[in-house]
């Protein structure tokens, strides 16, 4: 007799999977990655390959020998963490620093909480902030963008538009930030490429508009008010939106499933929080850029937001 399978409903599945979501995010990062390859050349390639390879390697190692669980690198999350970490690094960062960053991202950012799904902070940002604090000089020395550059570590250095802003210098034309012809981390330079990726993610329903839009709107509003108050001291909001890691952060880092709130209302609270902290750090903090810190701080607040921001009920009492 045939053995039927019994289980309770539903008996069909959407076919959505972790791999699929990770793949879509990687695809969405592709335009920005290509821009990085164009402007930073070999350096970008070396840093990203090292970051991805070492993230996968560390995850497999920890799962196999430390946690002694099933190795799940095939779900693609480690590769994505590596890619995101690379996108947040300058392309002339020494290779061993990249490896240390990957180790911290995977080990401290993810595995010590129990692996994918349990981590409190965005692993790639944990790695990035660890490097930023440990090696501040290396992490804030950016290579000059130069098409198809063959140089890796000995490139000349440039400053980011945000540090121009911070330290009262002349700003380069805004077109440069849109296409990516500026100093900065690999992934953050081209606003257009990042927006393309964001549109792709929205189209594929990997993310919803709540987090990116609330972050960007908050930043625009806050810097807009400051600009109106004193146009000499504070740059106009467009500059703030297009420069630095804001787009990369709001589209790819803040929307990380594991570390962001689950409900649309919670996501808006979270986004507004990130926007406010980012602007405060940018305008009055000692670092020129604050997106990473803002996201990490709001990551910590996510469980609390989830607790108080319940979903919109069918019937609200």
């Amino acid at each position: 007799m045939n053995k039927w399978i019994v289980s309770s409903s539903p008996h069909v599945h959407s076919g959505d999977s972790i791999q699929k979501n990770m793949l879509y995010v990687v695809l969405a990062l592709l335009p920005a990655y290509l821009v990085a390859l164009y402007y930073f050349g070999v350096g970008a390639l070396v840093v990203s390959v090292i970051a991805i390879a070492s993230c996968i390697g560390f995850e497999a190692f920890i799962q196999r020998f430390v946690l002694k669980t099933k190795v799940s690198i095939s779900d693609g999350s480690a590769a994505l963490t590596g890619l995101l970490l690379a996108m947040n690094l300058p392309s002339n960062l020494p290779w061993w620093m990249v490896i240390i960053g990957s180790m911290v991202a995977i080990g401290l950012g993810k595995m010590c909480y129990g692996g994918l799904g349990n981590n409190l902070f965005n692993p790639a940002l944990v790695g990035r902030v660890f490097l930023l604090i440990s090696f501040p000089a290396a992490m804030t020395t950016w290579p000059i963008p130069e098409p198809f550059s063959m140089a890796y570590m000995d490139a000349q250095t440039a400053a980011t538009p945000l540090s121009f802003m911070k330290f009262d210098q002349m700003l380069p034309p805004i077109l440069n930030t849109l296409i990516g012809n500026e100093g900065g981390s690999m992934g953050e330079v081209s606003a257009i490429a990042l927006l393309l990726g964001g549109i792709f993610l929205l189209w594929k329903k990997v993310i919803t508009w709540h987090i990116p839009v609330s972050i960007l709107a908050t930043v625009a509003l806050f810097t807009g008010i400051m600009h109106l108050v004193d146009p000499m001291a504070y740059e106009n909001p467009l500059w703030h939106l297009c420069s630095g890691g804001l787009l990369l952060g709001s589209i790819f880092m803040a929307t990380d499933y594991v570390t962001s709130p689950m409900t649309p209302r919670g996501q808006i609270v979270y986004g507004v929080g990130i926007g406010l902290i980012t602007v405060v750090i940018r305008l009055w903090g000692s670092y020129p850029e604050g997106v990473s810190f803002a996201i990490l701080l709001m990551n910590a607040a996510t469980p609390l937001i989830d607790r108080y921001m319940k979903p919109k009920r069918f019937v609200s009492k």
Binding site: H11, D75, L116, T259, S260, P264
Partner: peptide, 25 residues
């Protein structure tokens, strides 16, 4: 189509919340 799918950790994507017609979590 009847074979069970491998269960993994919740990645907190929030899709169940988005799709719940009764607005539950």
């Amino acid at each position: 189509m009847a074979a069970p799918l491998e269960e993994k950790n919740c990645i907190r994507c929030g899709k169940c919340v988005q799709n719940c017609p009764m607005g539950l979590a």
